[in-house]
Each structure stands twice: as C-alpha cells, then as structure tokens.
C-alpha cells in the first residue's frame, strides 16, 4: 500500500535516531590505528643504513635524495659509507611504502603519525637530521619481525635500532623479493 514503505523508512531513521553516534570527535578521541598504518615521519635507523639507495631507486616518485661519502672512519654496522644527505620530500610522498619494501637492511620503516601539517613546502622536506632525531615509532608495515612481537606503534614505545630486528636479510638471501613469512629457525 502506498505510504507503508515510507513509514518503514521513517521508522529506520527513528531507530537510528536512538542509536549512539558512530562518528568520532577527532582531536579528543581517535580511531584505533592499526599497526600496519603507513604514516608520515619515516623511522630511519642510521646505524643500519648502508647508503645503498635502494629506497631512492624504488620510490615511484623519486623523492628520496641520498648523498653518500666514502669514509673509513665509519663505525656503524657493515657500512663503508657516510651519509651526507637523506632527504625525503614528504609533500610529494604518497605513502606507498615501496621504499620500505625495497630496503634490504631494514633501516627504513614507515612512520605511524599523520599530523604533519606545515606552512611551507620546504618545511615538509625531511632532512637527515630530522630523521636522526625524530621519535622512532615504526609501523609494522612489511616488517614481520615487528608484527611477530605484537608491536603497536601507537603505544608510545620507541624502538632502538637493535630492537627493531632485521628480518629482510633472510628474505633477500636469494637476491629476490621472496616473501617467506616464517623465518628459517637455523639462521640468526
């Protein structure tokens, strides 16, 4: 009958009227952010970085600029190069995470924040100093060792370069992007 469906619709809205709002009042409340969230402020561990620039090559936009200098005074793990420049032009970054996927030494991690508003474009370029000093709350994106530890970047716990572990070494053994999830127990 004409009108019945309309009444049905009215009842649906009335039912929803009595429900609790589903929206979230952002600055005070936040939605739960998942550990794999690909956020801004990359977490970069200088101690692990060899300056190989795989990340720079793999970035679809070519926004990572790396300048290295041969150095024999380097004390960092396994490297022969001193990094002079590691700029990420955040204002062009699309947070695809391919740079993180490319890094063979697990030196680069996606960040977990998203509130990096700035007034000028130049401020949006993350320099090597910013990367060194920024709080390290790495996202677990593409980093099974962090996910295996149930690490939650939003818990506020910061990880040092020793704690983040290095899983990719096992993966990249065959010189390919092979993605075995269970690490071989024999190795390391």
């Amino acid at each position: 009958m004409y009108g019945i469906e309309m009444v049905k619709g009215l009842l649906v809205t009335l039912k929803n009227f009595s429900k609790k709002p589903v929206t979230i009042q952002y600055p005070e409340q936040r939605v739960s952010q998942h550990p794999r969230f690909r956020g801004e402020e990359f977490s970069w561990y200088e101690e692990r970085c060899t300056g190989c620039a795989s990340c720079a090559k793999y970035c679809p936009l070519g926004i990572i600029e790396i300048v290295t200098d041969p150095s024999d005074t380097a004390v960092k793990q396994g490297d022969k190069y001193k990094l002079e420049k590691f700029d990420i032009q955040l204002f062009r970054c699309m947070f695809c995470g391919l740079c993180v996927e490319a890094c063979p030494y697990d030196a680069l991690f996606m960040g977990s924040g998203f509130e990096e508003g700035k007034y000028t474009r130049n401020d949006m370029i993350i320099t090597i100093d910013d990367l060194r000093n920024s709080p390290k709350n790495p996202s677990t994106w593409y980093r099974p060792q962090l996910e295996a530890k149930n690490y939650d970047p939003r818990s506020g716990q910061q990880l040092s370069w020793k704690e983040v572990g290095r899983e990719s070494w096992n993966w990249h053994k065959t010189e390919k992007a092979g993605m075995r999830i269970t690490p071989d127990p024999k190795q390391d």
């Binding site: 809205t13 929803n16 009227f17 429900k19 609790k20 709002p21 589903v22 929206t23 009042q25």
Partner: peptide, 10 residues
C-alpha cells in the same frame, strides 16, 4: 543536531 542524530552523527 537532530539531523545529525538521525544520521548517527553528532
């Protein structure tokens, strides 16, 4: 406010 509540907003 009313419309918001009908749409389960605030």
């Amino acid at each position: 406010r009313l419309l918001g509540r009908f749409q389960t907003r605030v």
